[in-house]
Amino acid sequence: MVSLLKSIINNVLRKPVTRCYPVERRNSFAGSRGHVEMDPSTCTFCGICARKCPANALTVSKEPRSWTLEPYKCIVCGYCADICPRKSISMNPNHGLPGGI
């Protein structure tokens, strides 16, 4: 383990590569699949997203108009955002906090 000694000393003298989460947070990358967002003003409640969701996390009904996402079922694949005909669904790059979106 002597051969790693040089980099161990370097590591001791350098500032840590980890962050002091949650005080200091990393910014999300643009285009990161953080969480699903829906814009109700353009949505027609057609239900395509609910039928295509691989995890059955979405429930949509036309009458009464409702769109529900179960955060614990959602696998954040972004497939709903891809197939939405009105582009009402989008991916927000910020990751949701534990305990809900």
């Binding site: 161990i8 590591n11 590569v17 285009g31 699949r33 696998i75 972004g78 497939y79 991916m91 790059p93």
Partner: peptide, 28 residues
């Protein structure tokens, strides 16, 4: 220390993966 060294380097790969695809490992 080798374990830490390897996983630190891995983190850079995961970051570039997230930047290019939106996911760290399950990049879909």
């Amino acid at each position: 220390s080798l374990f830490m060294q390897a996983w630190r380097s891995r983190e850079a790969v995961l970051d570039i993966m997230e930047a290019t695809t939106g996911g760290r490992i399950i990049i879909s």
